[in-house]
Amino acid sequence: MRMVFDLDVEKCVACGACAVSCMDQNDIWPDRGDAPYRRVGVVEPLPKAGDGRLTYLSLGCMHCADAPCIKACPVGCLFKDEQNLTLYDNTRCIGCHSCAMACPFGAPTYGPDGKMRKCDGCAERLKNGLIPACVRNCPTGALSCVPEETYGTAAFDRSLRAIVEHAER
């Protein structure tokens, strides 16, 4: 089953429960130099917007349909699995950071060994009938990971995928 990740920007409050759940799932310890796979933040309104509206975001790997990181990797570490998740085997990673330059969201991170690591969409959990850790705990229901057949941006007040596709690239 092909899965789609998305964030409802109108529901997100950047509380970070997703980021912490991801750290718990993936044993990420920022105090030991690990970079998190998921980050949250409050984006201040643009001065010209004038409405004072803050945007709250949770950013991680979007598992893009046409993932630029896959093309950028010189050693072929990155690939799509049958769930359409962008996965990787970093055995051959040379730490060249090409994937970082390819990703508009800063999703690739690098471990102390210099090798790339990132969100794997909790592929193994999905295969076992469990939903990704970040989605599972998201207290506002902003994050979602649903089968492609049932996915539609209409279900969102403001889909991150939609704003990114229309405005960010």
């Binding site: 970070g16 429960a17 912490v20 759940s21 718990d24 799932q25 599972r136 705990n137 998201c138």
Partner: peptide
């Protein structure tokens, strides 16, 4: 090894906040 919210629980029905998700640490 890990925590998540209990589904069907009358309090939180599966959800956890930032703080609760940090229980292991």
């Amino acid at each position: 090894l890990k925590v998540e919210g209990t589904q069907g629980h009358p309090m939180n029905d599966g959800l956890l906040c930032t703080k609760g998700a940090a229980n292991r640490a």
